[in-house]
Design a protein around this nucleic acid. Structure first.
Length: 344
DNA sequence: TAGAAGGATCTAA
DNA sequence: TTAGATCCTTCTA
């Protein structure tokens, strides 16, 4: 069932090579528990009690349902026939099926009604395949986007491997709260992300009999998403000539346009990569300095496919943020120094 | 001279 | 409509 989620042909392999897909399938293979999680959590998402949640994760909670709904939208396209059969056989199962109807977002519903177009069976199959690919791309984009949002809120990296013990505890707290799981943080104390990733589902269950399998499944989703981001970053590097390796999920992965302020923050969050061209002067206050204006402008131009980009144009765009209250000049104005109005 | 500031206009999504 | 891109003039360190 998850195979459709995992192959992602449109994004991973523009040339359509089979070998890449098979690699994807093997690496992206989520466990049965992960699959079950998606199905099980959907119910809790639908009965979400937003008022009951903590403010710090509120926006995240509103964001996460789209992940699961998207997954189910995608599953619908692949397993619709099977589900219809099941629903016909079982009125009990028919109800969840009706609840799984895709949201009314025509532009995000690429399942083309080929019936009325008199397509031959072969063309119809191709159309369905293309539609499925589009849906898969969107699902992946949603997953990456929602995880990225979570990362920003929790101030952790998307790749669990890189988490320290504090990051692990943050993630555990967040997951427990979001899915109303019993507290299991103590059972995973002193464990880094690397330790966590090395643990089997059974080991999760041993540490937390009540929700170990659920946590393991959620971690599995994160690991897969992190791997996909990595794949996407490599693709970007090829496109841009390999000058830089984007380690954050970017617009080309999620399908969303990136804003200049987001781009600048991405650079700032990777000092080991971009510290020579842009760096924090005061991270707490959101004050940063562009050390190499030409380089930053060139990177932005690469990102937006604007070869003629220069600092004059980039700085004009930054100044547009003054009115919007996103970026401003610090109280003590200095050349090439700006300040995020709402630092992370 | 490079950068800052901001007006005006165009473009792509 | 929005977010940038582009071009421009004026000012400042």
């Amino acid at each position: 069932m998850y195979s459709s989620f995992l192959q992602v042909p449109a994004m991973s392999n523009p040339t359509g090579g089979l070998s890449e897909d098979s690699v994807y399938g093997s690496r992206m293979g989520l466990t049965e528990s992960s699959l079950a999680i998606l199905e099980r959590d959907r119910g809790s998402v639908e009965t979400w009690d937003v008022e009951d949640t903590k403010p710090c994760v509120e926006s995240l909670q509103l964001s996460m349902p789209s992940l699961y709904l998207s997954c189910f939208d995608m599953l619908l396209t692949e397993d619709a026939a099977w589900l219809v059969k099941v629903s016909e056989a079982s009125p009990t199962l028919a109800m969840p099926m009706s609840r799984m109807e895709p949201r009314q977002e025509p532009e995000q519903c690429p399942v083309i009604d080929s019936q009325g177009q008199g397509l031959s069976p072969g063309l119809e199959g191709q159309e369905e395949e293309r539609s499925l690919e589009q849906v898969q791309s969107m699902v992946v984009g949603e997953v990456l986007k929602d995880i990225e949002t979570a990362c920003k809120l929790l101030n952790i990296t998307p790749d669990p491997i890189e988490w320290n013990t504090g990051n692990v505890q943050k993630w555990l707290l967040w997951t427990e709260h979001l899915y109303r799981l019993p507290q299991a943080g103590k059972a995973f104390q002193e464990l880094t992300g690397k330790d966590l990733c090395a643990m089997s589902e059974e080991e999760f269950r041993q540490r937390s009999p009540q929700c170990g399998d659920t946590l393991h499944a959620h971690l599995d989703i994160w690991k897969s998403a992190a791997w996909m981001k990595e794949r996407c970053s490599i693709g970007d590097t090829k496109v841009t000539g390999g000058e830089e390796l984007w380690s954050e999920a970017d617009s080309s992965c999620s399908g969303q346009p990136i804003h200049l302020w987001q781009f600048l923050r991405e650079l700032l969050l990777k000092p080991h990569n971009y510290g020579r061209c842009i760096r924090w002067l005061n991270k707490e206050k959101g004050i940063f300095k562009i050390e190499d204006s030409a380089h930053v402008a060139r990177l932005w131009g690469q990102r937006k496919n604007r070869p003629a980009m220069n600092y004059d144009k980039l700085s004009r765009s930054i100044r547009q943020y003054y009115k919007k209250g996103i970026i401003r000049k610090p109280d003590v104005s200095q050349r090439l120094v700006y300040q995020f109005v709402h630092p992370v």
